[in-house]
Design a protein around this nucleic acid. Sequence first.
DNA 1: TCTGGGGTCCTAGGACCC
DNA 2: TCTGGGGTCCTAGGACCC
Length: 420
Amino acid sequence: MSWGIVDVANFYVSAERLFDPALRKVPVIVLSNNDGCAIARSEEAKALHIKMGDPVFKLRDTIRKHGIQLRSSNYELYADLNRRFNEVLGEFSDVVEVYSIDESFYRAPVLANGLGDVAGAHRVREAIARSVGLPTRIGLGPTRTLSKVANALAKATEKVWGGVVDLHDTELRARLFAKWPVGEVWGIGRALEARLKPLGITTTADLAAMPPAVARDVGTVVLERLVRELGGVECDDFRPEPEALKATAVTRQFGEPVRDLDALREAMARRAWRAAEKIRAQGLVATRLIAFAHGSRYRPNPPNASRSARLSPATNDPRVIVGIAGRMVESMFEPGGVYTKCGILLEDLSAEGAPQGDLFASADPKAPELLATIDGLNARFGRDTITLAAQGRGARGFDTKRSQKSPSWTTNLAEIPIAR
DNA sequence: TCTGGGGTCCTAGGACCC
DNA sequence: TCTGGGGTCCTAGGACCC
């Protein structure tokens, strides 16, 4: 068994550059929702020491001094490009697991000499570059964990090894692991790194040499599996089908702080509506709802509250979900509080029709037809053509800021690029 | 003034059962 | 001096990922 993982280099920046040549060869950063932080940086921006998550207001001087180009996140564009590069990857492998918006695992062949198919990986990169226009790197290994480490090494050694690293060979592993910090390994975050350090485990080689039982003791079964996977033993089950979503969330910072109950209720209604729409699109219903609202954690004594409820029967009906969320807002709201964010989580999702009914409550029998009609109209005439009155109409100050958004080049006919 | 959003998995501990 | 033991289920919270 052999895995490859493809990741797109600086994905959001590369995506923006695809349709805007003015962004090439200059420093570019793509901002988080609400234009708050830098979440993607071009190589030129990284060279200026801009870090992942740096707040934009602290970068003002650097941005002006170096003429750094800013873009708001354009998730429609990124999602569409993700679909496209996975389509190309699918031409090379029967098994493609979409891991994140810019990374996918694929099953890759092992060659007769026991090594991974490096030449094949280069062909995948060339095909994605040619058909989609995105730069990628690929890691190969006998387990997902090893392919992820190989991918990280491929980034670090791109100039020397050309963007592909294969970790099937145990001697090469030993050589590279000795110099690779343990904190760079997939699955080792800050907390685990700090627990491993006093034990003298600072490199990937140290971690790989840990007896699995000790690993379990220091961490949990997760760390034990990680150690085994580093040794080439697959612990992660092979998943023939993409797994169903278990929970979903719609949470957003406000463009401007919210101080009154009506605005907070309306903002929550918009998020609740979107969450219900998301699970309907996947044919799911939720059994648990959590709503929260809070102020800035950078201010003293921010308001902070959450409420949860069971949904019985399980539902994806926005009238129910928005209604409950609205009552939760009323019970959470503190007069005088300055709110900066609210959101909703829908959990314990299951397929529509599958969950047990409720003996005492029953769903509106006409709901499926009504909701299908609403979703159909919104798909045809645009998002939010039909909404609930509780959401209010039109743009509001609390809506997320996206002042530098590029057009939806590939997903909206009105914004399609024009060539002369 | 201004600091993202959305997931998964695991464990400890409480409630409850016989 | 005496105090049961062993399960299951649920939730909150922590850790990790991109």
